[in-house]
Structures are given as structure tokens and as C-alpha cells.
Amino acid sequence: MNDTFELRSGDTHIEVHKFFPGAIAGVTIFALVLQAAFPVYVHRLDFLDLPLLITIYFGLSRRNPSTGLLLGTTIGLLQDSLSGPTVPLGLYGIAKTVVGYLASSIGARLDTEHPLARFALTAGFFVLHQAVMVLTRRLLLAQPEAWFNMHLVVGAALNAVVAVPLFLLLDRLRRSS
């Protein structure tokens, strides 16, 4: 059995990647632990959403919408659980489900291996993630929340910058065919 294979749609050939056993679970837990540790040891890094970057990366690589959205749901619910009782279960879950689904869907249609494509997609998904969270807060939780602020722009840019080398690092976890 091949570990990587190609999706054919018209003239495009998109490779679907598989990872070493336990890589996805290990990276997910590591990202959540780091996310919780950043504010304690490295101040001013709370803009960084590592669980989101992991969701995007595995979504773009696996290119299967069903697994992408389920991974997003799992990571989002874990992040909700670790954010304390003031964050209801489902707030990050819904946002990351949508991101996981869309990342997988886009990954199945476009070549997302180029650093520039990864930069742009990460920035876009960060904005989408925040928009879904604001929408959830406003519509479902009746909590006032601003649609736009400068943190959104800075957060999108910085997460995208971090995503490029991080994704290159995560590429090493792929199984070669």
C-alpha cells in the first residue's frame, strides 16, 4: 500500500500525505501544552494559536474533509476544556471544525505546499477562525464582541509568519512513499 497517493481532478495532481503513527495525536497534545505554557514562560505570545496552526496543517495535508473537520472538532474541544469554565465547550470547537473542513477541502483542490500559499492561507484561516468565534459569541451566547480590531490583523500576520517554518518542520513527520 502506498503511503502517499494522488487525487486527480482535471489536469491537477494533488498528493495526499500520511504521517507516522501517533504523529497527529502527539503533535496535537504538544501544541496544546505549549499553548498553555507560553503565557507562563514567554510573555506576549498569547497571539499565537498553535492548535489552530496544527488544524490547518493537518487539514491541508490530509485533504480529506471528514477527517479534517473531526480533527478540528477534537482540537477545538480540547482547547475549550483547557481554557477554564468561562469558555463554554464548543466555542473553539465550532471555529476549528469549520477551519478543519475548509482547509481539507481547499487542500484537495490546490497545491498548498508553497510557503507563500501557506502564509496566505494561514492568515485567511486565522481571520475566519476569529470571525466564527465572534459570530458564535454574538449569536449563540449573546455576548458583545467587536468584529474587527488591530489584534486581528497583527494576530493573522504573526500566525502566518510562524506557520511557514512550523509547517516545514511538520513536513518531516510525513511518511515517504
Binding site: 498553555a36 505554557a37 507560553f38 503565557p39 482547547q79 481554557s83 473553539y92 468565534m133
Partner: peptide
């Protein structure tokens, strides 16, 4: 001893 913090910006908590 503080061993962690909230895993996101939606809340301000420590563990």
C-alpha cells in the same frame, strides 16, 4: 506554583 495558563485568548486563567 503556576504550571500553565489558558489555552487561548478567550479567557484569562492560570493553572
Amino acid at each position: 506554583r503556576v504550571i500553565g495558563a489558558s489555552a487561548g485568548t478567550a479567557s484569562r486563567t492560570i493553572e
